[in-house]
Every structure is written in C-alpha cells, then in structure tokens.
Design a protein around this nucleic acid. Structure first.
Length: 571
RNA sequence: GCCCCCGUAGCUCAGUAGGAUAGAGCAUCUGCCUUCUAAGCAGAGGGUCGCCUGUUCGAGUCAGGCCGGGGGUACCA
C-alpha cells in the first residue's frame, strides 16, 4: 500500500470516529519535527473541548478503538504521545520503490513537464557598463541563473536577459574624462578598471570645476544625437566592459540569451509615451510628464523629465511591453534588489492601466536584500564597493592551499581550487532567504567547512570515490534493494522531497529551499558514512548501500548544478 | 511624516497552513583517522525567539502598539 493510501485510510478512520470532516482531519494531520515521533501525527487538543477529555486520553482512546493490533496494512506503529497520536508508516516497499525510481531516472529525477509549452523571461545580473562587477551584482546574477536552470528543469522554455546599464549621462562624463586623460591609460586586460578610474577621477575633478559637469552633459547630448566619434567611444567602453563581464560570467557558468540594455530601448520609447498620452493617462506636473497613481497609494510615475529626457521607468515600461510583444511570455521575472520595489510596483501598474491585464499575474519583481560588508552598505558612491575579482582572487588563494594540502599529487589543482571558490561564493548567496540582507564577511568567503558549497562538493567527491572503489557499474537496476536497513532508510527517505523542493523554488523564487535541502541530505549521508561501512564482504548489503549512495550522489549533483556549482569528483 | 523589509545562541542563519524539550553552521571545549576522502563525524556549553498587550487548549509563527536597524518616498538607476 502506498503512503498516500495509508494516509487516506488514517484520515477516514479518524474522521468517522471523531465526527470531524475528512478535510478537517487532513489539515490537522502534521509531519512531526522529530523523526522519533514517526511520519504522521494527529494532534488531539482541539477535540478536548467537545469530547471533554484530556488530549492524552483522547489519543490513547483513538489508538485503542481504531488502531488496536493487528494494524491496518501500511502502518508499522501507532503510538499516543502527550496528546498526539503518532503514526509510523511501514516504509519497506515505499522506500525501495522510491530508490528504484531515483536510480532509473538518474539526473532527470525531479524533472517535470508542468512547464512544457510555457515561457518564462528572466532578467538578471543587469550590470553597468564601465563599472566593475561588484559583489552586489553577484546576488542578482546567481539567483537569476539558478532560477533559470530550475525553470528549465521543470520543462519551461526560458529566456534570459542581461539588462545592461549602458545609457545615460554617466557616459557623457566618461567620454569627457576620456578626452581629458584617456591617453594615460592602457585599456589592456582589465580595461574596465581603467574606465572606472576615469569615472571616479572625473567626479573628483568636477567637485572643483563645475564646468566639467556641463561638459559631460554635452558629450551625452552629442552621443544621443548620433555623433559618430562619441558613438565609437561608447562602443569601445561597451566592448571593454563586456570583455571583463564575460570572463566572470564564464567563471560562474552564467549565460544570457540577450544583452539588450537600456540603449536598446532608446528608439522605442516614443510610441509608448504617445500611447500613454492617447489614453489620457499622462499628465503634466511641475513640467514633467507623469502618470498619477494616487488612487493606488503610490507617488506618481515619472516618465519624462521637465527637460524632456526619459527616465528608467520609461525604459522599463518600454522594455516590458516590447518583451511581451516579442516573446509572448507566460511569466517575466526581474531579479533586482529590493530598493527598487516601489519602482516596479509603479511601472507595472502603469502598464496595467494601459490595458495589459496580464501584468498583475505575470510580471514579478523577484527582489532581494542588500549585500553588506561588515554590516556596512556597499555603494559605488560611497566608494565602499567590493569587486568580485578581488574577492575571487583572494578566496582562490586560500582554496588552492587547501586543495594542495588535501590532495597531494592531484594534477588539476588550479581548476579544482577555482570550482571550490565559486561554490563557496555562490552558495553563500543562495542559502539565505532572498529578502534578507546578506552580510559579506571575508572570513566566510574563505571558509570551506560547515554549511557551505564546498561541503556539498566534498560529500559528492566522497561518494564518487566510493563508487570507483566499488568498481561495479551503477546503478544496477537488476539488484535487489530490499536489504535496506533502518539507517539506509533514514537517508533514502529524504530523496522523496527533492522534486517537490524544486517546484517550491520555482513557485517562491526562493533558492534557499534547495540549498537547505541539499545540506540536510549531505549531513545525513555524511553521518551515515561515519557510522556504517558501506563496502563489506556482505555482497547483498553492499549492493543495497551502494545503490543508496549512488542515488544520493545523483541528487546532490543535480541540485548543485541547478545552483550553479560544479559537483567535483575529487577534492 | 507615510510605506516596505528585518530583529531567534557570542557571530551568520533555518524554523513550511500556529503544535510536542526552539534547530544548523562558525567560534570555544572534548572525543574519533592501521580499512570506502577527517573539507568529515559524535558530544558539551551557549536562548526571557527586540519589548508589551491580545486572540487561542497552545504563539518564534497570527493581530494591535511600542523600541531598534535598513530601504523607499517626482525629475539618479
């Protein structure tokens, strides 16, 4: 009997006896937090009033009346404990069936077809041209890329967009700065740092020379009106920057289908503004064109400045409508920091008012908290930016030392150290709830123990080396799996939750659920590993254990890949 | 001022539709490598779950009010 059928039977029995409706019983049944309490629990507290008996008495009576031996099929134990009636399911066949399923499906275990024929657009990373990739950008990039993979696993077609910050007056300033001091720089390998330096230098100089600001604005106006020389420079800045970003994206294993940034929408905004005007949504206030949103308890959405220039709301609105036209998505996700919450609410509402009812349902701001450094905010303005390259280089040094120390004679130490470093950096971003600010602590970036990405990689490496020691091909689908003991069941049982976990991530845009799940699974197999020898002379027991270990490895590997972490074979 | 997020062990964080002694990791202390990777495992100490009131048989979880931190709040993104 399946676990589900057993559950239904319990519900039916209790409902009949207590005069509760079956749905009420279903809602009341819970999963005990502690494994010792079994698989299901029925709390009797609410019955105390109507039955006028103490909960423990009710629990004991229910057991006597409904679950006196012999127990119904599928149940191994029924026990009243402190006002609860606890059920332990007879899991023998359930667990072996589960294990067989994982072994058969391998890496596609947990894959689903629910997304088939459905399309999701994801906007993430969205870095700024001429600004080095900071630790702050990491969060959007990592979360977005992970969600992208999760949706693909569920069968969705995904379209990933890097909405580059590649337009605005800052480019005028940069051009001005370049004309002044550009000859002093080489723009070689890490040209983006030269650009950043130019930008910072311009700001410094502008403090004592206000004329520079005007110069910057003028250069931008020239750029906008199609000045070939300025366009050429803009293109160069763009290319320098992308060269660096692409290097980082490659390290992180992140790819984009489109690199359409703000400049891309430059030409496309006018029709949108015109349409808004035609629909009488636009009003002029203090010289600016706005959409009034007081009815929705929001400040007005500003779409044109008093000097006629557009704003980011104008671009984002245009982009949203353009993407709907172009891709006809079922859902669009914006992985952007929570500081922009209001901005998204505003332009989503404006799009809706334009007659796009789908927005409320399909457009989602997947917001996330700040990355703080030692409790301090990081901002380019305050000059407290931490660059990804610096963190990566430093962490990699430590990783390399450890890799060499732990694996004397291994040949691909550099590659391994890099993958371990990425795992550490990526995992710290993904394991905490999105809405929380994450505190970036240097020591954590260099820690490869405990609840970290490398811990999961290590677990995977152990299981891989175990398999090669075993020697026989795995999985062995002809093998008898019935020899799983209680210890093996405790581990195997956890695999059941994997598919639901992936769905949960997709529904909540919350990667931490998967991260937590993998940690729990790894902890279970590591604890098992320490206590029980897997390969012994007992051939049958060994086969069963190896099958379990294999299944666990497959799930860990798959989960790690979804998160963007390389499951290492050796480390 | 108004709106949003956060406040759980020394630190970083879990805590699923309210339920059983509030859980991990780091750090500290104690054990465990002649056999499958010790980047591991087992154990100890460490908590008035920011404060108050309420709802409930039962509140870290729900409601209201405070306190503290952060963000946002029309021409930056």
């Amino acid at each position: 009997m399946s676990a589900d059928a057993t559950r239904k039977k319990i519900v039916a029995l209790i409902a009949a006896e207590t005069k509760l409706s079956p749905t009420e019983v279903v809602v009341m049944l819970e999963k005990p937090k502690q494994e010792a309490h079994g698989d299901l629990a029925f709390p009797c507290f609410r019955l105390a009033k109507t039955m006028r008996k103490a909960p423990p008495v009710i629990a004991a009576e229910l057991k006597e009346k409904l679950f006196a031996p012999p127990l119904p099929e599928g149940l191994a134990k029924v026990e009243p404990v402190a006002g609860y009636l606890n059920f332990t399911l007879a899991t023998d066949t359930v667990i072996t069936d589960l294990l067989r399923q994982v072994l058969e499906q391998g890496g596609s275990y947990g894959s689903m077809t629910e997304g088939k024929g459905r399309k999701v657009v994801l906007e993430y990373s969205s870095v700024n041209i001429a600004k080095p990739f900071g630790i702050g950008h990491l969060r959007s990039t990592i979360i977005g890329a992970a969600l992208n993979r999760v949706y693909r696993k569920l069968g969705y077609e995904t379209i990933s967009i890097n909405h580059l910050g590649d337009w605005g007056t800052q480019f005028g300033k940069l051009i001005a700065a370049y004309r002044l001091w550009g000859s002093e720089y080489e723009f070689a390998d890490n040209a983006i740092y030269d650009l950043y330096d130019l930008y910072v230098r311009f700001h410094e100089a502008a403090k004592s020379d206000p004329a520079l600001e005007e110069k910057g604005r003028e250069e931008f106006r020239k750029l906008e009106s199609g000045d070939t020389e300025n366009e050429r420079l803009w293109r160069r800045f763009h290319d320098y920057s992308m060269r660096d970003f692409n290097r980082i994206y490659e390290q992180l294993g992140v790819r984009f289908d489109y690199l359409t940034g703000e400049s891309f929408y430059q030409e496309r905004m006018t029709p949108v503004i015109e349409k808004l005007d035609k629909q009488h949504l636009l009003t002029v206030s203090e010289g600016a064109a706005i959409v009034d949103l007081t009815e929705y308890d929001m400040p007005p959405c500003l779409l044109k400045k008093s000097d006629d220039a557009t704003l980011y709301a104008t671009r984002d609105l245009t982009a949203l409508l353009y993407r709907k036209d172009t891709f006809n998505f079922d859902k669009i996700l914006y992985v952007v920091g929570s500081a922009q919450k209001l901005h998204f609410r505003q332009f989503f509402k404006v799009a809706e008012l334009m007659g796009n009812e789908w927005v409320a349902e399909q457009a989602v701001h997947v917001d996330f908290g700040w990355v703080k450094f030692s409790g301090q905010m990081m901002s380019s303005r305050a000059g407290t930016l931490i660059f990804f390259d610096d963190v990566f280089a430093k962490a990699r040094e430590t990783a390399l030392e450890i890799v060499i120390q732990e694996n004397p004679g291994m040949d691909n130490v550099d590659w391994t150290a890099e993958k371990v470093t990425i795992a550490a950096l990526v995992f710290t971003q993904l394991k905490v709830r999105r809405n929380r600010d994450v505190n970036f602590v240097w020591e954590d970036a260099f820690s490869f123990r405990g609840a970290t990405g490398p811990y999961l990689q290590y677990t995977h490496a152990r299981l891989t080396s175990l398999a090669s020691k075993y020697g026989k091909p795995l999985p062995d689908l002809s093998a008898d799996l019935l020899l799983l003991g209680d210890e093996e069941k405790q581990v195997t049982k956890r695999l059941e939750a994997y598919p639901a976990k992936i769905k949960q991530v997709a529904e909540s845009y919350e990667t931490s659920f998967l991260a937590e799940y993998l940690l729990d699974l790894a902890a279970a197999i590591n604890s098992y590993w320490q206590r029980i020898r897997i390969i012994t002379d007992d051939e049958k027991a060994t086969t069963a254990r190896m099958q379990m270990a294999y299944a666990v490895r497959v799930v860990i590997a798959d989960g790690l890949r979804l998160l963007g972490i390389e499951p290492l074979k050796r480390m």
